[in-house]
Design a protein around this nucleic acid. Sequence first.
DNA 1: CATAGGGGTTCCAGCGATGGGAAGGTCAAG
DNA 2: CTTGACCTTCCCATCGCTGGAACCCCTATG
Lengths: 128, 128
Amino acid sequence: MNIGDVAEKTGLASKTIRYYEDIGLVTPARSANGYRVFDDSDAHKLTFLGRARALGFSIEDCRNLLTLWEDRSRASADVRAIAAEHLADIDSKIKSLVAMHDTLSNLVQTCAGDDRPDCPILKGLEGS
Amino acid sequence: MNIGDVAEKTGLASKTIRYYEDIGLVTPARSANGYRVFDDSDAHKLTFLGRARALGFSIEDCRNLLTLWEDRSRASADVRAIAAEHLADIDSKIKSLVAMHDTLSNLVQTCAGDDRPDCPILKGLEGS
DNA sequence: CATAGGGGTTCCAGCGATGGGAAGGTCAAG
DNA sequence: CTTGACCTTCCCATCGCTGGAACCCCTATG
């Protein structure tokens, strides 16, 4: 498979795949003309990466998960630890976004949104 | 006020304040020795910026809000539009994070987290 | 008066995870 | 033979800062 094929197959951009090779997440073979050649195992790895990234795992997390994924003797506790930590991250991001949402939504609701110059949103941002 | 004072007052890092000057959000005066000199109005602006950023507004949003804030004849509808759009952004981020959370939390819950090599989290990332 | 420290200044580089685009090589079809 | 779709490497841009280097300024102390 050339990069375009594997890109379509995995849903990743070609650029992204090249980047993943750059940082050592995949190591596709090269054909005589210099093109990258991906086998099923590469594609499988990239699919894995795509899913993990879609779940918001950082590249470094992905690297670790990938290592664990390829290590047949790994303990599932290791994986669980990474996932649990990431889950806590997600939780705290959600909390902070919900807090933002609440504050901002209050401001928006108290704002008449008409053509008068008096705006409670700006007031809210201004004072304490 | 020197930059350190206003940094403490507003809770922003000095570096951040310099950056805000760089991109034209504030324009403090300069004293003879080249130091930035901030008056109350500058500090007020920076406080405004700090709050808006804390609510997740982008720098460009902040620039617009700041313009509106300084324009005594602005329509509150303009402000409301920016805020409402940002609110929608926040909403969609929350939705996507909650979806991530749910998926990942399912995976984590089905994972025994012991020392066996069989891990449902990796399986989940692997297959569809 | 020299020195030490804690300000301040500029500029340059880097983060994460790509995306855009230039400049050029390669391949299959018409 | 040419066209157009692919591929390659390379460098720059994004966003919102943050760190560091190298240097200047001001005050206090011995």
